[in-house]
Design a protein around this nucleic acid. Structure first.
Lengths: 260, 260
DNA sequence: CAGTGGTCTAGACCACTGG
DNA sequence: CAGTGGTCTAGACCACTGC
């Protein structure tokens, strides 16, 4: 790494050969290398990665440079620092980050204060991607996908109905039984069983009336307003890996968001 | 500043005299001092703050320490760095941050691609805080507040209906005329006229049916599902300064959110 | 006590902006 | 060209964890 002057980049020039400086600081390159190791599974979720000193030696840079690379990974929640202990690969399986991607919280009380969510798998089958699903998951129409539907209940009250689509290839072997028998966050199962980590997601939120059988599953009157939440979740390198359509009851819960 | 050993803190001990270390690193103290200057209006929105070198000299610390303090302020969007030019106090008045706190975007096209929003003030009057408003704004019930109602339209279509409450004291002199005659983001007016900068906000989102006259103002059928967005906006030091209740049509727009 | 992340410094040099 | 933010280094020391 010391052999690479900081004013150059590892990336090839533009195809057109244009003068695109594309200056990439050393710490960004280090970040990329660490990202590669995360992606390849060299360090697994929950495990510690090498110390800053070790990484500095490995890449032949100063501790400060490694530190800045890790800073960015920590900001993106890819990695968690713990003073005196080390830096750990982030995971969805830990207690205090159980609902990292679930922004629906009870109107009174803290997130999770109602006790654990009850998860009920309604359906899970292999099918083919519609044009819409294909676009969301960067597949081709007709490619094999897994489709599932489930209901989440809090304190016995059905609150969330979700349909989700996954590309079949990376999730080969996922069945309704496997899903139903796993008690815990779905993303934690993805990590342990398929080495697939959801790292970032985009959501589009609308208000819709409960129709088409959703009113029955959520046990609300037909026409009740529901929050419609469409999510595309990404793994490393911004690869889309899941499309999810959720319908949230908001009579006792609300979607919470912080702006800054 | 050099006189303050890094292992101590400027804050007084706990009232109980308990051994709460409350170790505060130097750069946090510097951050606090810069924050004070921002709050006092020593540097105004849009202006440049002193260079890192100048601030380092002023506080008698190294450039790196000032840098880390500014890093955090920049992360919180309180300040914007521009390489080669300087560091500037963030503002809601700039083109590319016009809608910093508005997460409603058109289903197709970029945010703002529909041209400027039309703002229509329906009402603005002085009143007294209900228990609920008082709680949100950290006032006492009955304290004087300003209440306003407006409709935002995009491409001529009424899309957002908002009721908002402001503490009367900091916004002394705000009238319906002043609001109506100002074309631009409301938060920009707050900055220039009242030296009040909204820095952070929390939103609670629900799905509700259009009733109570809201269907008329938004020109939708009664019972149409709307997104209900309750926002509390904070200025420096986490002081609540605005309560806002918005009702968003989501037939051609959606609330966009990024999770990470 | 050793090992980890966290802070702070001083100095060198780079990239970008504008006169 | 000078001034700004941005990167990188080497070294010292502090705070926290666990053996």
């Amino acid at each position: 790494m010391a052999a690479i002057p900081s004013s150059t980049t590892l990336l090839p020039d533009d195809a057109a050969g244009l003068a695109t400086p594309a200056f990439s600081p050393l710490y960004q390159q280090i970040k990329g290398l660490i990202l590669q190791s995360l992606q390849s599974g060299e360090w697994k979720p929950g495990e510690a990665i090498p110390s800053e000193m070790d990484l500095a030696a490995r890449y032949r840079v100063s501790q400060g440079t490694v530190r800045k690379a890790i800073d960015e990974l920590a900001t993106g929640n890819l990695v968690v620092r713990r003073q005196g202990k080390g830096t750990f690969v982030a995971t969805h399986a830990e207690q205090h980050v159980q609902f990292r991607f679930l922004k629906l919280v009870p109107d009174s009380g803290m997130p999770g204060s109602e006790g654990p969510a009850q998860r009920e798998i309604i359906d899970c089958r292999r099918t083919r991607a519609s044009a819409e699903v294909a676009r969301a998951l960067a597949l081709r129409s007709g490619d094999a996908v897994l489709q599932a539907r489930r209901v989440l209940s809090f304190a016995g009250v059905p609150t969330i109905l979700e349909d989700l689509w996954l590309p079949a290839l990376p999730f080969k072997g996922l069945t309704a039984e496997r899903l139903a028998s796993y008690h815990g966050p779905m993303y934690a199962l993805f990590e342990t069983e398929f080495n697939m980590r959801m790292v970032r997601a985009e959501e589009k939120i609308r208000a819709e009336s409960a129709t088409g059988g959703r009113e029955t599953l959520l046990k609300v009157a037909p026409g009740t307003p529901l929050l419609s939440v469409e999510r595309i979740a990404y793994t490393y390198r911004d690869t889309p890996m899941e499309l999810r359509r959720g319908y949230y009851r908001t009579d006792t819960h609300h979607y919470h968001n912080t702006l800054s």
